[in-house]
Simulated assay, not measured.
Amino acid sequence: MSEFTVGTRGSALATTQTGHVAEALSGLTGQEHRTVLVKTEGDVTSGSLAQLGGTGVFAAALRVALLEGRCDLAVHSLKDLPTKQPEGLVVAAIPPRVDVRDALCARDGLFLAELPEGATVGTGSPRRAAQLRYARPDLQIVDIRGNVGTRLGRVKGSPDQADDGGVGRVAQGDLDAVVLAAAGLERLGLHAHITEYLDPADVLPAPGQGALAVECRPETARTGELAEALRELDDLPTRLAVTSERALLAQLEGGCAAPIGALARVEADQLLLDAVVAAPDGTDVIRRSASTRELTVGGADALGRELADLMLREGAADLAGL
């Protein structure tokens, strides 16, 4: 029986997401799969990264592995994938999206509105930080880094959480709450830590949040059983939604560090897109919506860019420091 290889980073979330996709593709093709651990440091030369146009180190390492033929496929969290697609690679499948929301993990089961004045909330996302400050200007937002287990361990009263990369621990219990993507917590079976799912009406997620991207070389997606399975795995409503969100992000010339949120959905015969651009300090936001009846990838892309242009005319670049 033939076999295909799937590249993955070593964190628990990355390997879990990769495993879900690989199992689905094995089920569709009847082929065995093998995961290939791709290190994010040491095995990627600066020259290779430069050729990929300055993408983030995690995406770049996987992309180099694909281009060098060390794996057939790579699975990314779409929200972390740069909007510029490198030459020689295609996003062959975007599986059905899961929960798009941000999740509050707070001490004592508290909701956002119940956190005491001056409570400390950890996040590594400028988008989350800006929207949290807008909703609750009294909060102290603390910049945090690390894998999911590390971040959960920062919450007061949280049981020790091993870092989900498999090594190390951090000082525990110095924050009142952290905010993470609900999708990642649910994929890791850590949903019990969630005290509140944040309503997108209050905190819009990152473009592409809750979705995965399966990337490969063009020939892999062109013909054969694996190519057919990738086409079957691809979910058109999800692809349309994230295409519009990421087109907006690209037109605003923002990256994952920009205070930009977007969420699209297909309802009946329309694609609806909501977007927010925030001042980093949370003092102001521009939030707008748009829709289209052109339910094609091209129509979705145009919707995102048109809404971004509207927001730029209204001062989004100056507001967010883009």
Rank of each mutant, 00 (worst) to 15 (best):
S2W: 11
F4C: 15
A12Y: 08
Q17T: 11
H20I: 06
E23Y: 13
A24I: 08
S26D: 15
G27D: 09
G27K: 10
H33T: 02
H33P: 08
T55D: 05
V57R: 08
A61M: 06
V64P: 05
V64D: 06
A65R: 14
L66V: 06
L67F: 03
E68C: 00
C71R: 03
C71N: 06
L73H: 06
V75W: 04
V75L: 13
S77Y: 11
L78F: 10
E87A: 15
R97G: 09
D99K: 08
L110F: 10
F111N: 12
L112H: 11
E114P: 05
E114I: 02
L115S: 04
P116W: 01
G122I: 03
S125K: 14
R127L: 14
Q131Y: 02
R133K: 13
P137F: 05
Q140M: 11
D143G: 02
R145Q: 10
G153H: 01
G157K: 05
D160K: 00
Q161M: 00
G165V: 12
G165D: 12
R169C: 12
Q172V: 14
D176G: 09
V179Y: 15
L180P: 00
G189M: 10
A192C: 03
H193N: 08
T195A: 12
Y197C: 08
A201V: 15
V203N: 07
L204P: 02
Q209D: 04
G210Y: 02
E215P: 15
A221R: 01
L226S: 05
D234W: 14
T238V: 03
T238K: 00
V242E: 07
E245Q: 13
E245Y: 10
L248Q: 14
L249K: 01
A258C: 10
I260Q: 09
I260L: 12
A262Y: 06
V266T: 08
A268G: 05
Q270A: 11
L271R: 05
L271K: 01
L272R: 10
A275F: 11
V277I: 04
G282W: 09
D284F: 01
S291Y: 13
A302D: 14
G304H: 05
R305Y: 08
A308E: 01
A317S: 13
A320M: 12
